[in-house]
Design a protein around this nucleic acid. Structure first.
Length: 273
DNA sequence: ACTATGCCCTGGGTGC
DNA sequence: TGCACCCAGGGCATAG
């Protein structure tokens, strides 16, 4: 599950390997056709071929490659996608959905077991992510912004954190981790949090993301960095997928509930409504 | 404008 | 061993 720290790790890994390179060949594999959102697979292959990559950016969980024709190639890995840089001659993996060969004898492989990943080719990256708000590690994600957004929602605070319009880049792992760090029960209605608790939650979101980023992300299942390696943060999470294990702070068994269809993990003693 | 639900997809796990 | 079933979940469409 690549979330903000994982996608940012990929971006940092790939930036020196991709920027300045020209795309010499693109192949979307049989079975991978659905990743092409804005174009037919063949039209997308044709449009990317010959382009030079001028920059690699990230917004929330989206990767944005800036191309020399002014367009943006916007990728989303969803749950099981990975983007790995290999030599051109490297064999295709079982779940390779597309390959992008570069002009220096290397290749980028888009692997995606569950085929949920997407590619957009657009003039303006915003067109590919219309429901996306401020990046959770960007300057626009402030305590004041979070307070204003939570004030008009009655959903559980966990659900609000998963809303990409409120904090782009937060997913199931870091929503749980942020609630734990803020000592807030994830079921608490968003609009019942006072200013001090919202401020604590804001800081907890940022801290949870930065802690994972420092560990190159979390590899609970399919996540791989830009070089095919795993992150190290999944062994350092406080609550995510630690059901029935003791809370590191108080020893109470971590509980699991479902919120908005998502598994949610929390400490019933440390986290209050 | 907000909220709830279902869909997409496939491998791994469980129970019979 | 085989089979049916459920679960994982990000983003989007849809309906209320």
């Amino acid at each position: 599950m690549p979330e903000l720290p994982e996608v940012e790790t990929i971006r940092r890994d790939l930036t020196p390997l991709l920027v300045g390179r020209r795309i010499t060949h693109v192949a979307i594999q049989p079975g991978g056709e659905r990743l092409a959102i804005t174009h037919s697979p063949w039209a997308l292959e044709a449009a990317l071929t010959g382009r030079r990559i001028e920059g690699l950016e990230r917004h929330g969980k989206y990767l944005v490659a800036r191309l020399d024709d002014g367009r943006a190639w916007v990728l989303h890995l969803r749950m099981t996608g990975s983007l790995v840089h290999v030599p051109t001659e490297a064999p295709a993996g079982r779940y390779e959905r597309a390959r992008v060969d570069l002009d220096d004898g290397t290749s980028l492989r888009f692997n995606d077991l569950r085929k949920f990943g997407t590619w957009h080719l657009v003039e303006d990256p915003a067109d590919a992510m219309p429901h996306t708000g401020p990046d959770a590690l960007g300057p626009a994600f402030t305590t004041a912004w979070l307070r204003a957004q939570l004030a008009r929602r009655s959903v559980p605070v966990k659900s609000a954190l998963l809303d990409q319009h409120i904090a782009a880049g937060v997913g199931n792992i870091y929503a749980d981790e942020a609630c734990f760090r803020a000592r807030i029960d994830p079921r608490t209605p968003a609009n019942t949090l006072g200013p001090r608790r919202v401020a604590r939650l804001h800081d907890a979101v940022v801290a949870a993301l930065e802690a994972s980023l420092a560990d190159r992300g979390s590899s609970f299942s399919d996540y791989r960095d830009g070089l095919g390696g795993e992150g190290m943060h999944h062994v350092r999470v406080r609550v995510f997928r630690r059901t029935d294990l003791p809370c590191y702070d108080c020893g109470t068994a971590i509980q699991r509930v479902r919120i908005a269809g998502r598994s949610t993990h929390y400490c019933p003693r440390c986290q209050k409504t």
